[in-house]
């Protein structure tokens, strides 16, 4: 399957109309739905799911912001409004298992929805990829070779420190036979990209530099030619950092899903 025609993505509404129940719901997230760069990651996640034959669905226009940026910014009202409306939709479809394309959606649905009546098994797409690799359903063959490429991984705060998911994304990279390097600040010491806590939606406070520029010093020091990301917001910040450092020709920022899809020729 090389294009979306062959991997038609169904919504839950369509699934139910066909009398089918998917194994897993893919929670796309706002960035994955609207941000042009993140949309490519979304489609790659769909390709991976189709490739391994997992039946999945999305909520489509019934999905709405989890409320994460509102909550981190202190707007608990708006967060809980969003959460309860989403939980109503999810429970209405009797959803049991969710894979998200974004660590923020992942954290919010996994940790903060249960208290409001939304109980699901939630995994991040890098965890799904790791599981598929462990089960032997997904390899790195038939596509672009990353062999010997110098790749570093940027830990998203809400995946790493927020939920102690450090290994899954790294496992997904280990199958590539690439030259994996860690940045000076990695894992639990990883430096934020600067987007979290609703910073994505505002100008940074006054300082002497932007956080993604600070992070670029780690990227450059690692001498990696590929920066693997696992969060659409980190993706934006890292790409801006690469652009501002005028390293666009040398350094590519790719989501783990994109790398996996490429390595498998999807």
């Amino acid at each position: 399957m090389t294009n979306m025609e062959e991997a038609k993505v169904l919504t839950m509404a369509e699934m139910v109309a066909q009398g089918k129940e998917p194994e897993i719901l893919f929670w796309v997230g706002c960035a994955g739905s609207f941000d042009e760069r993140a949309q490519r990651i979304t489609r790659d996640i769909c390709k991976i799911l189709s490739h391994v034959g997992i039946s999945f669905a999305v909520l489509g226009t019934e999905e709405a912001c989890t409320g994460d940026p509102a909550k981190r910014a202190g707007n608990e009202f708006l967060f809980q409004m969003q959460a309860m409306m989403n939980i109503q939709v999810l429970n209405g479809y009797n959803i049991k298992k969710i894979v998200t394309g974004c660590p923020h959606c992942f954290n919010t649905i996994k940790n903060e929805y249960p208290g409001l009546g939304g109980n699901y098994e939630v995994i991040h797409h890098t965890q799904l990829i790791q599981q598929l690799i462990d089960e032997g359903k997904l390899k790195a063959e038939g596509g672009e070779s990353f062999k010997g490429k110098r790749i570093t991984y940027h830990d998203p705060c809400y995946l790493g420190r927020g939920n102690d998911v450090y290994e899954a994304p790294r496992k997904a990279l280990e199958v590539l036979d690439a030259d994996l390097v860690e940045m000076k600040r990695c894992r639990s010491n990883g430096l934020c990209c600067g987007a979290g806590g609703a910073q994505m939606f505002k100008e940074p406070e006054k300082g002497n530099k932007d956080i993604n520029i600070e992070r670029m010093s780690d990227v450059l020091e690692s001498k990696a030619t590929v920066v693997a990301a696992a969060c659409p917001f980190c993706m934006t910040m890292l790409r801006d950092g690469v652009k501002l450092s005028e390293k666009e020709k040398e350094i590519e920022v790719l989501d783990i899903a994109e790398i996996t899809a490429r390595a498998n020729g999807l």
């Binding site: 919504t11 706002c30 739905s33 609207f34 489509g60 912001c65 409320g67 609703a198 939606f201 505002k202």
Partner: peptide
């Protein structure tokens, strides 16, 4: 951003109808 989340279900000014 709050207004967008409240009205469009996304932190940006995109229509909910365009989400898919």
């Amino acid at each position: 951003m709050f207004g967008n989340v409240e009205n469009n279900g996304a932190p940006w000014k995109y229509s909910q109808a365009d989400r898919f």
